[in-house]
Amino acid sequence: MGYEVSLQGVSAKLPPMTKESQKIQMNSHKTQPFIQLQNLSRSHLQGGYPQPVLAGLNGEIQHGESVALLGRSGCGKSTLLNLIGGIDQPDGGRIIIDGVAITELDEHARTLFRRRHIGFVYQLFNLVPTLTVEENLLLPLELNGWPLNRGRERARELLQAVNLLDKVASFPDQLSGGEQQRVAVARALVHQPDLVLADEPTGSLDAESGEQVLALLEQLVAVEQRTLLMVTHSQAVAERADRILTLADGQLDSR
């Protein structure tokens, strides 16, 4: 059973932006695809030799679309996710997100872009162990220059939405796996990113917890009108997305 999401008025509150983030504003060309992957290639060194993982990959994702990325282990799903998230750079090709060619930004600008426009959910939660649940949510807000009182208000709304308001002062190691992942989902959305990237978000959870997290992620993305790209190896999880992309032999296949 999923959680009911109630975020009345939340989306109406526009997040403030730092001056640095404003410099890398997206163009919001709603007529163009939200994400464009153009001739993307990336290799990894194996045994000292480069092994191509992505070879001239092309693809598009539309605004507000929920997309699942399927593929066998080692096919490059996470690599693609990292490239789109700007935490890795391709060997060749371009990635354009809402009109911004992030592959052409320098490292600092990519960081600022990521900070403002992208939220991440990982398989292993990756919460900051030395921060409380609420502080984990405040962190992206603070990095984006939200005032503390507004940030706290926003964090509490999200925590209420994921039904963890009673855990605001808990540290991650005091929570169950499912609870930690719900916090991670809330953290990924708290600064109202345009794109949420999730890498096997249910991979470390039991079936029931996985279902709860998934439902929450779907609902929050829907309510906040975000674009979701989720890496999974589960056909069942993938089926719940608007569209499934399959990665094989370095190329994307859409259905």
């Binding site: 935490i87 960081t111 600022l112 403002r116 990756n126 962190l139 984006n144």
Partner: peptide, 8 residues
């Protein structure tokens, strides 16, 4: 932290 947007 870098993924979340903390700069160098």
């Amino acid at each position: 932290l870098r993924v979340l947007g903390a700069t160098r």
